[in-house]
Design a protein around this nucleic acid. Structure first.
Length: 635
DNA sequence: CCAGGCAGCCAC
DNA sequence: AAACGTGGCTGCCTGG
């Protein structure tokens, strides 16, 4: 039953319930309703706080009501154990909008999404149990439960709003809204014991559960800190990128392409120009999964006669439409996905707070969204230049050296490879020398590097041949030689696959993580184990850094890297200490780090690399003020 | 009209 | 024998 306190007498009753619940020591379900997902945005509001057990829920309408806020805050601080679904979100909302500190609520909170992920990390559409509260409850709590989410969406539509915008506008007294709110607190209370029992039964250890909750809290602190945006840089940047996108879109329109993002238009127009869309060495054009003609970057770059670095090849006459589409799409993506996201995503203090999903992928890898800072263009400093360390600080980055190869060597216990790594050899050069002798060429080294990546990713010779441009027979020979040289890797890979088949298509990693495999892609077992373990290595480092008091310097984890800042005078020392926390011995393999201290923007760490397609220099000549801002980062 | 699938592209 | 992995996000397009 859902109760919505109105009077002072109602609140007295609520407080009595809280006291009883606290005394029992039981787990309490908790949830919030807000105006949206952008917790740090200017006009963000916390609307309701829900607290409940398996039977009853209290919905406190805290929006604009100090006495309700105080009651909710007191209850959350008083209750000894809380369970949220996707706790980071609610904890940060409560930290910022209810003055209930992350440091207080975090340590006593359980995240049912973490428990679900540790049993089966797959969303429903990938054949898993699902990770959304609704998916899980439909299965484990009450298959016949009313679909309040759908009802609520219908209400949003009835008031002229959408699934995304209704949250801020719906009447706080709307019965469907209140029912939906209360039900989630009840559902999460009922769900947790079921998930925990299943996790125990599957043999996943308790230490992994606490590990993930500790990682979640460190990441929540980073998310709360956020990162400063250089607004004087990013505003003109967006304008410039939009201009560039429009300029090239105009060129494309001369060939009948009204939208460069419509592949069908692009392929039709190219065919009309007499292009066959057949890549060199092929007999047929590439097609997408649904059978449409493929006009992706690879095809267009061939037609535009440029290589992957946008340099002119000279093999054919460049197709002007392909060139225009490429340039317009790239400038458009940079403007919208990165520029606008940074420009419009800031809080009152000019900071963005990218969401750090600490336990996300099937392999447990993290992801970062809103904006996606893990995937800003890295060949050029243009976009990263928009993000700044604290005033007077320097930005730093510490990454692992070839961590996935090293983790693979350790997991496979591949003696020859482990020795080469321990001796500090250049691994790919070492491999090339073993296979091709002391006179190996740089191409041999590149090939060996590719074969190594193929092992990590589970790729085959055909893919590798395409990527490197090396003839298929040569690649096959190299792969065979690699397997002979590093027998441990093939042995490990076969063993993982054999065990997985015998054990319900599950790969178990060294931390005791359970990774489900797709039956038709058992070869991915090695990649899963390596990617997942490399992720756990970085997370362990995050916890070590938390213990050393370094979290306050960190902005983001990026797969094999930590980004942070520190005051100019101590930046070198802090970066070194972060490197020391990250460095470790992993089953006899040293995991080394490479600390790098930059200047006063993230872009400063990417300025050695020359600009590529976008004509920075000429544009800056026309915009001296922005040029000056860019110079500051260079210094 | 919106939700969701597809195609494409950004990262590690 | 051979099999490239994990995400986020935007615009287009279509089905409901």
């Amino acid at each position: 039953m859902t109760r919505v306190p109105e009077t002072a007498a109602d609140l007295v009753e609520f407080r009595r319930w809280v006291v009883r619940q606290a005394a029992s020591g039981a787990m309490t379900g908790a949830d919030t309703e807000t105006t949206g997902l952008d917790t740090f945005a200017r006009h963000y509001r916390l609307r309701t706080v829900q607290i409940g057990d398996a039977r009853d829920a209290w919905v406190l309408q805290v929006e604009g009501r100090p006495e309700m806020q105080e009651a909710a805050r007191w209850a959350l601080l008083t209750l000894p154990r809380l369970v949220f679904h996707n706790a980071t979100f609610d904890l940060l909302v409560l930290d910022r909008h209810l003055r209930a500190p992350l440091e207080e609520l975090g340590p006593k909170s359980t995240d049912s999404k973490i428990i679900a992920h540790l049993f089966d990390p797959r969303p429903r559409h990938e054949g898993g149990y699902g990770l959304k509260l609704k998916d899980l409850c439909a299965r484990d709590v009450d298959p016949s439960a009313p679909d309040t989410q759908e009802d609520l969406t219908a209400v949003f539509h009835s008031i002229g709003e959408t699934k995304d915008t209704g949250w801020a506008k719906i009447d706080i007294n709307h019965p469907t809204y209140l029912q939906y709110a209360g039900l989630d607190a009840i559902l999460v209370s009922r769900l947790l014991p079921v998930l925990e029992a299943r996790l125990r039964k599957a043999g996943v250890r308790e230490s992994l559960v606490s590990f993930e909750h500790a990682v979640m809290l460190v990441c929540a602190k980073m998310e709360r800190r956020g990162m400063l945006v250089d607004q004087d840089y990013v505003r003109p940047l967006v304008g410039r990128l939009e201009e560039e996108a429009a300029l090239h879109a105009g060129r494309a329109s001369k060939y009948g392409v009204t939208s460069v993002n419509a592949p069908k238009q692009v392929s039709t127009a190219l065919l009309a120009m007499g292009e066959t869309l057949i890549l060199p060495g092929n007999s047929k054009p590439e097609r997408t999964d649904s059978g449409a003609l493929k006009v992706d970057k690879e095809v267009l770059q061939y037609l535009a006669d440029v290589d992957r670095e946008w340099k002119r090849i000279g093999a054919r006459t460049p197709n002007p439409l392909a060139d225009a589409v490429l340039r317009s799409k790239r400038a458009g993506k940079w403007a919208k996905s990165y520029g606008v996201a940074m420009r419009d995503g800031i809080d009152d203090a000019g900071r963005i707070h990218p969401k750090i999903n600490s336990l996300q992928a099937r392999t447990a890898r993290m992801s970062i969204s809103s904006p996606p800072l893990q995937q800003l263009p890295s060949g050029d400093w243009t976009i990263r230049r928009a993000l700044l360390p604290e005033p007077g600080h320097r930005i730093f980055s510490v990454d692992y050296s070839a961590v996935e190869m090293r983790v693979l060597a350790a997991l496979a216990d591949e003696g020859v490879m482990k020795r080469a790594i321990s001796e500090g050899r250049d691994l790919h050069g070492f491999t090339a020398e073993l296979i091709y002798g002391p006179d190996y060429t740089s191409f041999h080294r590149k090939l060996c590097k590719g074969v190594g990546f193929g092992k990590v990713y589970g790729g085959g010779s055909v893919t590798l041949s395409r990527q490197t441009g090396a003839p298929l027979p040569d690649v096959k020979k190299a792969v065979a030689a690699y397997d002979r040289t590093y027998r441990g890797i093939k042995r490990y890979s076969s063993r993982l696959q054999r065990e997985a088949r015998a054990d319900g298509y599950i790969v178990w990693t060294p931390v005791g993580r359970r990774l489900p495999l797709d039956r038709d892609r058992v070869y991915a077992a090695t990649n899963y184990a390596v990617q997942s373990t490399a992720r756990d290595v970085l997370c362990q480092a995050l916890l070590d850094m938390e213990d050393r008091g370094l979290t306050e310097h960190l902005y983001l984890p990026i797969h094999d890297e930590c980004l942070g800042s520190a005051p100019e005078e101590i930046a070198e020392d802090v970066a070194r200490e972060v490197g020391a926390a990250m460095s470790m011995d992993f089953f006899g393999v040293p995991l080394d780090t490479d600390p790098e201290v930059g200047g006063s923007s993230w872009g400063s760490l990417y300025m050695k690399k020359a600009g590529t397609m976008i004509a920075n220099d000429s544009w800056y000549a026309a915009h001296p003020q922005a040029a000056h801002a860019a110079e500051l980062a260079r210094a």
